[in-house]
Write a protein that binds this DNA or RNA. Structure first.
Lengths: 348, 348
DNA sequence: ATTAGCACTCGAAGAAGCAGAGTGCTAATT
DNA sequence: AATTAGCACTCTGCTTCTTCGAGTGCTAAT
């Protein structure tokens, strides 16, 4: 009789045992047996009692045995219950706080660098893989475009979006880039590009401008092409993965690690995983992520707010047996800071 | 009696056998035996003859047996001899040529993007890890700095170096960034920063400017700090690793793959490996790389020339059992193209 | 309700045995 | 003199068998 829904309310002792099992298993990676549990926690009951309780937790679906006569391991539901009810949602550790503060301090003022940095810090801290998404959405607008000539036929172009993403590249033209070309370019840009969502600035859109520009279309083309490339790369910067090699050290994955890495390296499914998160901090355990490749992994997605809008995310991906108790506060603290700093950087 | 140096000149047949063993082993990954070798190559001698020859190649140090009564595997010296004398240095395959041409075409005109792209292409082509270094050296000069205000207190700053590297970031100031501040900044920049090597623009150097700027130092400080960060990041972009997860699929490494990835992810030793290369294309096999972590790997470093100077490199790192015969021409072709395109992009 | 005691189960780790691939040597062949 | 056939020998990888021990569930005693 598994799934006694009515017995939802676990006795105090069951809760304690479940919590201990989860925490011990997270720590050691070995299935925990009744004896081992008492040894490690100093509980003042006998192993037989613990065994009975474990047995019930087992049939309630919170624990399971890899095989008869091995210790218990938390099931997905076990982790879920732990995360939802048992975990002491403790504040972030003073040391990690310092590490984070120190780490981001070098990138204050530049959103992109800040996000990259936060990904890196979090990967080091959690020893898991991290994913960040830039604060880019449907409504990321092109805010400014600058073209600075560096030679007769070449110029550097810089593009700034409404959320602080800055993209730049060199571009060359076959015709001279002189003051009159620039003037025309700024005219076109001001009229048809600035203020538009980055996603709309496609090569096709640029072609529709041909009529408006008439004779000068071909001299402006190299510059306009560069604009589309920059606008496109704004979208690219959306999803970045870091620290994936951390996952290799987890013996949990065994051979499967390679397949997982392969999965993570493809951005479409990964993006899907991240985007399907709910709420400002979402923990998805094992098969709660609908991809089979993640059945042994948990994904924690935390959103940061820029100007009050939850636009970007920072995520941690690791084995289901990850240290939720320290990772969750860390990622929450990190997203708070990142959101605050970006908002601040964007103030006029 | 190993190492008969006097017998340096291998008989024609020995050469052929060595070449076949190396190629077959590269292809299959299994130690090759006398019988298997004839089957695979259709040589018209008996297995016993091949065995005798192999035995000699063995005592000359070119082949070895993982254990008695297994087939032969090339030693490091075996690979070396193969690469130096036996490999038909054939031209790059028509298909790969197309792939490379098509791949880089999207990045023509922007050195940084071009290099990133080439790394990616080469990783896909070779299924190995790739490392690129930007064309940055002691003499990479700051060529241009632009500051574009985007608000009263914030601006975007763009920095261009003499070799086409473009770096940008947002920066904020506590004081207003108005025309007069900008004018002063450009004055300082023109006098003390433009034309200097990027590596010299350190926070310390900026402090020495305080005297020259006098009262305005503090209003300019945020901008100057941003310059040092950008100048610093020019150096950062020097070394980038890609495709490292490719290495996981090689069974050659077994468990060691993790350690190798860890090694590659640290940039100091990696940079040392790359920089100790000689000549325009250097193949280092196994322990020829002085790091123990690379004893089962080969590194191929190829330099590209910008304006005739061999400044940057593109490298491939993989197991010693890599397909030298196709990889070497590919990387050579790639560096040729990259060098040519960057040189072209930098023309005035 | 808890606990001590015990028979039982199952995997991990080692030992033993076998099949096969490949060798080196010797003696015969060209 | 070089090549080849033949053969005894060696070593690994695989499978099968045992043993060992941790951990369980049940029953009976507290």
């Amino acid at each position: 009789m598994p799934d006694k829904k009515e017995t939802e309310a676990l006795s105090e002792r069951k809760k304690q045992i479940l919590a201990n099992v989860v925490e011990l298993y997270i720590k050691t990676g070995e299935p925990v047996g009744s004896k081992g549990l008492i040894d490690a926690t100093g509980m003042s009951v006998s192993s037989a009692t613990v065994r009975n309780e474990m047995n019930e937790l087992d049939s309630m679906g919170y624990l399971e045995q890899p095989h008869t006569s091995a210790g218990r391991v938390p099931t997905q539901e076990g982790y879920r219950y732990y995360v939802d009810h048992l975990m002491k949602n403790r504040e972030v550790d003073e040391l990690t706080k310092r590490l984070i503060d120190a780490g981001v301090s070098s990138a204050v003022g530049d959103p992109e660098k800040l996000i990259a940095k936060s990904r890196e810090i979090l990967a080091n801290l959690t020893k898991c893989a991290t994913v960040s998404t830039a604060p880019v959405g449907e409504m990321t607008l092109i805010k400014k475009i600058e073209v600075v000539p560096v030679g007769a036929y070449s110029a550097m172009m810089v593009l700034l979006t409404s959320n602080g993403i800055l993209k730049s590249r060199l571009c060359r033209s076959d015709t001279e880039i002189n003051a009159s070309v620039l003037e025309k370019f700024y005219g076109i840009a001001g009229a048809f590009i600035i203020g538009k969502p980055a996603a709309e600035i496609t090569p096709v859109y640029i072609q529709t401008l041909a009529a408006a520009i008439e004779g000068d279309y071909f001299t402006l083309l190299p510059l306009l092409a560069a604009v589309t490339e920059l606008a496109d790369s704004v979208g690219d910067s959306r999803l970045v993965l870091g620290g994936s090699s951390n996952l290799l050290s987890f013996k949990d994955y065994g051979e499967g690690a390679v397949a997982l890495l392969e999965f993570l390296s493809r951005s479409e499914p990964l993006s899907d995983v991240i985007n399907s998160s709910r709420g400002s901090l979402d923990v998805r355990i094992g098969s709660e992520n609908k991809y089979k490749q993640l059945e042994n992994s948990s994904v924690i997605v935390s959103k940061y707010s820029v100007n009050g809008d939850e636009t970007g995310t920072i995520s941690v991906i690791g084995p289901t047996r990850m240290d939720y108790e320290t990772i969750i506060p860390s990622i929450r603290y990190m997203t708070d800071i990142v959101g605050r700093l970006i908002t601040q950087a964007l103030e006029e």
